[in-house]
Design a protein around this nucleic acid. Structure first.
Length: 824
RNA sequence: GCCGAAGUGGCGGAACUGGCAGACGCAUACGAUUCAAAAUCGUACGGGAAACCAUGGGGGUUCGAGUCCCCCCUUCGGCACCA
């Protein structure tokens, strides 16, 4: 025997054999077979795999291999999220075309993935930057367009000066670009949006359907969508017939309104002040606001600042004249951009009113506190009884909220409204390396969708890469100038490309029929494979990718293209891989290269360590010593199996079943149960692996202490061990399986089932406690009668001594577990 | 500020329904093997001389609490002037 597992020889050997024999080929010819779609988030082809990928894909591979062995028809695909900025930046910096850069990165990463032995069917690989994919991305865009869910509008949008492009709301983190952390500025541009807000309510409601998602992610989505219930109220502008509508969640406080505030950027502000003495000051204020960064502007700590603009509005409830302000703390894009100021019951309004000496009028009092004694030092935002509120005085404010809204609705001055924090999804990007938006502009016909038979709108290859803030496409004459599909006249193409999150919002559907060149997907295949049973990826996509994908799915359902409305039944968000307590990153210099680890210890060792070191949802601390440990364990398995093979004809006796044989069989079946449950029920790969380790330790003891062993028991144990290891460490398991004399792949085996009868123990240890402290132990037949067990414990000599002279107050017996004697 | 998760040996972690806290692994020490080393195998390994004390801290429920309840602290993640 070889005394060491030669991974350098075995791993490539088996990878080749699996590839040649098509072990991981997906077939969907027999759709009566129960399917299991196991999906991991596809990577951006940066050029190198990092440990986060290894973790993500190792987890997925265990699930895929396990489900396959359990008899499911498993779809386990892989592909590339291949559009995006780094490729274009490389083009600018090194003069290499994004396509080439991306292609060679894909090639390298695919090789790295292959070396890890993941069970992908590479024939189904999907690459989003290829025309056979982005053609359908464009086609899907047009489905949105035709349904009125894609539109172009002029808006103040988030602009990242470093990436020289606009960003979606979801891509702005604390006022900075999600990619490069550069501070985001506002820019006025005409941009394409998808109407995700039309789906806000359904995206919110259907969170309830996501039983298999972590609560954390569901809560994050819920907060992001941010539904709030309230009312719209119309205030007439004094001296005109025009009204200003505000959104409020507290219509019960309307009698407490003493001022009104508009967001400075509202066009209405300019209109109201034009030609008035206030115009200059207002313009100055607006300009000043524009110089303040988004972060400072929206921070809760920023001091409130505002300006009276010379106009008043009329409170529709009591006809009062209310001064109109603009202020930094009112946001342009939430609600209507207007806020009714109720300083007594809103802290922000309170701060503002205090600073500018505005009236503070209490309209809600905590029960039993008379009006005249109230001296507010801060806003009162809790419940109470209405005062100073005309006909609503004396009502509980909760009731008044409904009654006032109803009253306004009857008089046409307001109505109940729901408002969402979610904004429409800005999908235009002023960059080259993305899917072109398939729209042309014709002088005669206006905005025209590119017809299906003219798709794809190819990305031209002969473009100049300069970070100008305009898409390189805009300077590519041959691309821009085209003919109008409607009238045949000269027309110009849209030069913005799509946000790459569009590409990744439907790739999981493309995987079901990756070669379909007539449709975005083959309906029958999607019907079979979707939805995804298990999705695995990092929690950083909790909002962006996962929300967008849910949105896409719902739109496709509404268009009658698919029959399900949630794409991912179960979601596992894996933790980060840390080194020295921090996330691995080049800038911190604490990275560990998967390539080096694989060269040094092999793929099986790398996978085993990463699965063993922590449960999947938690962060994982990298440890080189831990990797050594995993390597040692695999060699320990290797030697154990070889010792068995070498001794096959020597010391195995057939005749008797000894206690040790019996115990070994019990351990074998216990391990099957434990590993199966840990994978299936809880994804606790770490405890599954430790159970296998205990199994190995037990088998070593069995050998060491029993020169004569039952051959059937030993054979079952060894075969089981190798089979249980197969999903975790596929190469060594395959090698050992063949060394054991089998010719078919271990990965084609059925997952073992345990014999419940084998788990039954004849004798169990009973702990005897006195006042909850362990004082004695005794062996008893399993299932022994409770009363008899308690009596037996009380009769024990050691127990008698401890109890002597004390009063036994109570005795608790738990069959097969313990006896607790309470004494005084 | 609001929402969420987590705090267990020197370290990573285990304890599934309230029932022997620290499984499994790492590190460390000692021993065996060896001319020697590596590798391997074995033993020990929370603190304390002991009674006992120990799961972030303090209360509580219970015969019994890492696990359930209340209060507090710390760390990490998300949101953050959202009207």
């Amino acid at each position: 025997m070889k005394d060491r597992y030669d991974f350098a020889e075995c791993e490539p050997k088996w990878q080749k054999i699996w590839e040649d024999t098509g072990l991981h080929k997906v077939t969907d010819s027999d759709q009566t077979r129960e399917k299991y779609y196991c999906l991991e988030m596809f990577p951006y082809p940066s050029g190198n795999l990092h440990m986060g990928h290894v973790r993500n894909y190792s987890i997925g591979d265990v699930v895929a291999r396990f489900k396959t062995m359990q008899g499911f028809n498993v779809l386990h695909p892989m592909g590339w999220d291949a559009f995006g900025l780094p490729a274009e930046n490389a083009a600018i910096k090194h003069g290499i075309h994004p396509y080439q850069w991306t292609e060679s990165n894909i090639e390298n990463m695919r090789m790295q993935l292959s070396r890890l032995g993941f069970s992908y069917d590479w024939d189904g690989q999907v690459t989003t930057c290829k025309p056979d994919y982005y053609k359908w991305t464009q086609w899907l865009f047009l489905q949105f367009y035709k349904a009125g869910l894609a539109y172009k509008k002029h808006a103040a949008v988030n602009w990242c000066p470093d990436c020289v492009t606009v960003l979606a709301n979801e891509q702005v983190v604390n006022g900075a670009c999600e990619r490069c952390s550069t501070e985001v500025v506002k820019k006025d541009l005409a941009q394409w949006f998808l109407k995700i807000t039309d789906y806000a309510q359904r995206l919110l409601d259907d969170i309830d359907k996501l039983q298999g998602w972590p609560d954390k992610v569901k809560i994050m989505q819920e907060n992001w969508i941010g539904r709030s219930d309230g009312a719209e109220v119309n205030f007439r502008i004094d001296g005109t017939e025009e009204t200003i509508t505000v959104f409020t969640t507290r219509p019960d406080t309307i009698y407490g309104v003493t001022f009104m505030v508009l967001a400075p950027e509202l066009p209405l502000v300019e209109k109201l002040t034009r030609g008035t003495p206030y115009e200059g000051a207002v313009q100055d204020f607006i300009r000043k606001m524009q110089t303040v960064s988004e972060i400072d502007r929206t921070s809760a700590d920023t001091e409130k600042e505002g300006l009276f603009i010379g106009q008043h509005v009329i409170n529709p409830m009591n006809g009062e004249k209310i001064p109109l302000f603009i202020a930094n703390y009112v946001l342009m894009d939430y609600g209507t951009g207007c806020v009714m100021g109720v300083p007594a019951h809103d802290q922000r309004d309170f701060d503002f009113a205090t600073k500018y000496g505005l009236q503070i009028r209490v309209v809600i009092l905590p029960d039993g506190v008379p009006d005249k004694y109230v001296q507010l030092t801060q806003a009162y935002d809790a419940e109470g009884v209405m005062v100073n509120s005309g006909p609503f005085d004396g009502q509980n404010n909760e009731d008044a909220m409904k009654n006032i809204t109803k009253y306004m609705e009857e008089r046409g001055t307001g109505k109940p409204t729901v408002n969402f924090r979610l904004r429409d999804w800005l999908i235009s990007r002023q960059r080259y390396w993305g899917a072109p938006i398939p729209v042309v502009y014709c002088d005669k016909c206006g905005e025209v969708a590119v017809p299906d038979d003219q798709l794809p709108v190819y990305l031209p290859t002969d473009v100049e890469f300069k970070p100008t803030g305009q898409s390189p496409l805009a300077e590519c004459e041959s691309f821009v100038n085209t003919t109008c599909p409607e009238c045949g006249g000269p027309a110009k193409r849209e030069t913005d490309t799509m946000d790459t999150f569009i590409c990744s919002s439907w790739y999981y559907i493309r995987y079901c029929s990756p070669h379909d060149d007539r449709n975005a997907f083959t309906k029958s295949k999607v019907d079979y494979w979707m939805p995804v049973e298990q999705y695995i990826g990092g929690v950083e996509h909790a909002i962006l990718h996962l929300l967008y994908s849910r949105f896409f799915t719902k739109v496709l359902k509404d268009q009658g293209l698919i029959d399900f409305d949630e794409p991912f039944t179960n979601l596992l968000t894996q933790g980060m891989v840390l080194k020295d307590g921090a996330k691995m990153s080049k800038s911190k210099g604490n990275t560990v290269s998967p390539e080096e680890t694989v060269s040094q210890y092999g793929a099986d060792t790398a996978r085993l360590f990463i699965l063993f070191a922590a449960p999947p949802e938690r962060d994982l601390e990298w440890s080189d010593a831990g990797v050594e440990g995993a390597y040692r364990f695999l060699n320990r398995v290797w030697r154990l199996v070889y010792a068995y093979i070498d001794g096959l004809n020597e010391s195995s006796g057939e005749e008797e079943i000894t206690a040790a044989d019996h115990e070994t069989r019990r351990l074998t079946h216990y391990t099957i149960k434990k590993v199966t449950d840990d994978i299936n029920l809880r994804f606790n790969f770490n405890t599954a692996i430790s159970a296998i380790m205990e199994f190995v330790n037990g088998l070593y003891q069995y050998r060491d202490k029993n020169p004569v062993r039952n051959s059937a028991v030993e054979a079952e144990a060894v075969n089981t061990l190798v089979t249980l290891l197969a999903p975790f460490t596929p190469h060594i398991a395959e090698e050992l399986w063949h060394q054991l004399g089998y010719t078919e792949s271990v990965h084609k085996r059925s997952w073992p089932t345990y014999d419940p009868a084998a788990l039954v123990q004849d004798e169990v240890e009973i702990v005897v406690q006195i006042n909850g402290k362990v004082r004695d132990r005794m062996m008893m037949p399993a299932g022994f009668d409770k009363e008899a067990m308690v009596q037996y414990a009380l009769d024990r000599e050691g127990v008698q001594n401890l109890v002597a002279g004390k009063q036994v107050v109570k005795v608790v017996g738990v069959p097969n577990k313990l006896v607790n004697i309470v004494i005084k």
